[in-house]
């Protein structure tokens, strides 16, 4: 029903190439320039600054984060170095203290040993002296007993023939000879 009117209006053969209908050119060109100008200003004033801004901000943020990560890493490395140094120092100190303590202990020990040795030597000497005395005493007693015994024996064989001094001299000569 609507077709005849539609067909009659457009007139199928009359369409041809709408692209070459020059009466539409001024309007098309005018509005194209308006549209392009509008688009150009929308892009340069609004869209591009936002897009470029967003991209740059992101870029900066990433760069900042990387910088901060590098800074943290540097600090961590520093902390590790400080820790290592402290550890090494502590170890050295511990070693030193141990050595010192050992040396002190050794000195004390040496001193004690020396003292003990001296005491032992003193006691040994005293003991030797006393043993010597005892031995001398014993020898003297033996001489006296021997002299007396000798005189008694000689007296019993030949009474009055000998004296105490003779017997003592003879015993002494005999013991020492």
């Amino acid at each position: 029903m609507a077709e005849p009117a539609h067909g009659g209006e457009s007139g199928a053969e009359a369409i041809g190439m709408p692209q070459l209908d020059f009466t539409t050119f001024p309007s098309q060109i005018f509005w194209l320039l308006v549209a392009l100008t509008a688009l150009y200003f929308i892009l340069t004033r609004l869209a591009l600054p936002r897009i470029v801004g967003a991209i740059e901000e992101r870029h900066d943020a990433i760069e900042d984060d990387l910088d901060r990560a590098a800074e943290f890493r540097r600090r961590a490395e520093q902390a590790e170095a400080a820790y290592d140094k402290a550890l090494a120092e502590a170890k050295a100190r511990a070693q030193e203290i141990a050595n010192q303590t050992r040396a002190e202990a050794k000195a004390d020990l040496d001193k004690a040993i020396a003292k003990a040795d001296a005491e032992i030597a003193a006691r040994t000497a005293e003991s030797e002296k006393r043993i010597g005395e005892i031995r001398d005493g014993a020898m003297a007693s033996v001489e006296a007993v021997a002299a007396e015994t000798a005189r008694a024996i000689v007296d019993s064989f030949i009474p009055g023939e000998t004296t105490d001094a003779d017997a003592r001299a003879a015993v002494s000569a005999r013991l020492n000879g």
């Binding site: 009466t23 539409t24 001024p26 309007s27 098309q28 005018f30 509005w31 194209l32 308006v34 549209a35 509008a38 688009l39 929308i42 892009l43 609004l46 869209a47 936002r50 897009i51």
Partner: peptide, 26 residues
């Protein structure tokens, strides 16, 4: 009549094109 400032279907679609780009980017 068709004149320099006549608003046509071409004008409409140019406007739509600009609007869609603006919406997308903004």
């Amino acid at each position: 009549e068709m004149s320099l400032f006549t608003i046509t279907n071409a004008t409409l679609w140019m406007a739509i094109v600009v609007a869609v780009i603006a919406l997308l980017l903004l």
